[in-house]
Simulated assay, not measured.
Amino acid sequence: MPTIRSAEVAEPGGPFRIVERELPEPGPGQVRIAVEACGVCRTDAAFVGAAFPEVPFPLVPGHEIAGRIDAVGAGVQQWTVGTRVAVGWFGGNCGICRSCREGDFIHCERIQVPGWAYPGGYSEAVVVPATAPARIPDAISAVEAAPMGCAGVATFTALRGSRARAGDLVAVLGLGGLGHLAVQFAVKLGFETVVVARGADRAEAATRLGAHHYVDSTAGDVAARLQELGGARVVLATAGDSAAMSATVDGLRPGGELVVVGADPEPIRVSPFQLIATSRSVHGHPSGTAREVEETLEFAALTGIRPITQTRPLAEAGAAYDRMLAGEARYRVVLTP
């Protein structure tokens, strides 16, 4: 029987180990993907730490998957062997809950996230629902495509669906794995782009990515600086820092919005007085559906947007994960089985 290698965690918070298991076969309505790349996302830490309910152990994380379909299950007509695909946070939906019946698949009550609903992409092969994959354009490599299934689609769809229009001032809070993609998308979507990050040393990186302005959050009042630039139509919060998010609210112009994609368990502190007279708003944004991942990849191929990655072999999954947690990786770590 053919086998595959996977990087798994046996218990909550435990170390990674490389294990061999039988090559899984796709069932009806499923496809198998030979994994060529899998991003290491900070949300993986929530799974490893059992912060989400009913996380199964032993656990194979990984929800930023790219590879090729190498087997299809019964009843699957839309996919053929050899097709290059990516699977992100959206790893399938139930099709019967209220959100699904309304066509709002990303808010499915039983959304199937790889590494949670089924073994994820820290592996040489994964079996996923046939609704999960997104086609990868020829111009995008597997290593480049993998982070687009989570970090890429989250930032692109958040900006594209926001109130901002070409020429508006848009601020990206944070310049990490999410932020460096958000800056590129904001510039290519035609926004006057501001990066807000900690320290003067990030200014050069922000400029390289195309930003028009840089605000050092340690050097003064962030909101006042944004207002000096005209007030932000949108602040896209990619950094997981609720205090930093709160500090941007008064930098929004009337009708502006703080869009949150970075996760932090601490509350965002906003007074009703900051919102009522100015019609400002604060709201969250999830990832994106398989079709939205395709649209993200297509836009990236068209405009030259690429994630900045560091690759590590699957055998070094534990070290790659630790590097991500320590903030030592700029900007995305990608495993290459």
Score class of each variant (00 low, 15 high):
198 R>I: 04
141 S>D: 13
217 S>M: 08
106 I>A: 06
177 G>W: 02
170 V>T: 10
218 T>M: 10
142 A>Q: 09
216 D>L: 07
156 F>P: 01
183 V>G: 07
152 G>S: 11
164 A>C: 03
189 L>V: 05
209 L>V: 12
107 H>Q: 13
152 G>W: 12
233 R>Y: 03
220 G>F: 13
167 G>D: 13
187 V>P: 08
225 R>G: 01
227 Q>G: 05
224 A>I: 10
139 A>S: 14
200 A>G: 14
124 E>V: 09
155 T>N: 15
152 G>D: 04
169 L>W: 00
230 G>H: 08
123 S>T: 08
160 R>Y: 14
144 E>Y: 05
239 A>H: 14
227 Q>P: 00
147 P>N: 10
137 P>Y: 08
196 V>G: 04
130 A>K: 04
192 E>G: 00
163 R>M: 12
188 K>H: 13
162 S>I: 11
225 R>N: 09
210 G>N: 04
205 A>Y: 02
166 A>Q: 15
176 G>D: 07
146 A>I: 11
114 P>E: 01
243 A>F: 06
219 A>I: 06
246 S>P: 02
232 A>M: 00
133 P>A: 13
131 T>W: 07
171 A>F: 00
217 S>R: 15
226 L>Y: 05
242 S>Q: 10
185 F>N: 01
206 A>T: 11
240 G>L: 12
102 E>K: 14
151 A>N: 05
166 A>D: 08
175 L>C: 02
131 T>S: 15
230 G>V: 10
209 L>P: 09
106 I>M: 14
227 Q>W: 06
178 L>G: 06
163 R>W: 10
221 D>W: 02
167 G>T: 11
211 A>R: 12
208 R>H: 14
156 F>T: 08
164 A>V: 01
153 V>R: 02
219 A>S: 15
186 A>G: 00
107 H>F: 15
212 H>W: 02
217 S>N: 07
142 A>T: 11
144 E>H: 14
213 H>R: 06
173 L>M: 11
220 G>H: 10
152 G>T: 06
218 T>S: 15
123 S>L: 09
194 V>R: 01
158 A>R: 00
192 E>L: 11
118 Y>F: 14
187 V>Q: 08
239 A>K: 06
113 V>L: 14
202 R>I: 03
203 A>Y: 00
246 S>R: 01
234 V>S: 03
238 T>V: 09
104 D>E: 14
121 G>V: 10
151 A>M: 09
164 A>D: 01
233 R>V: 10
228 E>N: 11
158 A>E: 06
167 G>S: 12
109 E>G: 13
165 R>Y: 04
208 R>L: 15
242 S>Y: 06
219 A>G: 05
156 F>G: 06
151 A>S: 15
189 L>M: 13
109 E>P: 05
139 A>F: 04
243 A>H: 11
232 A>V: 00
216 D>A: 12
246 S>H: 03
182 A>M: 03
164 A>I: 01
137 P>A: 13
204 E>L: 07
245 M>L: 08
170 V>S: 09
229 L>G: 07
109 E>K: 12
135 R>A: 15
122 Y>Q: 13
189 L>Y: 09
207 T>A: 14
243 A>R: 14
154 A>Y: 03
104 D>A: 04
118 Y>M: 04
168 D>T: 01
228 E>Q: 13
134 A>C: 11
242 S>E: 09
147 P>E: 08
233 R>Q: 14
132 A>I: 03
189 L>S: 02
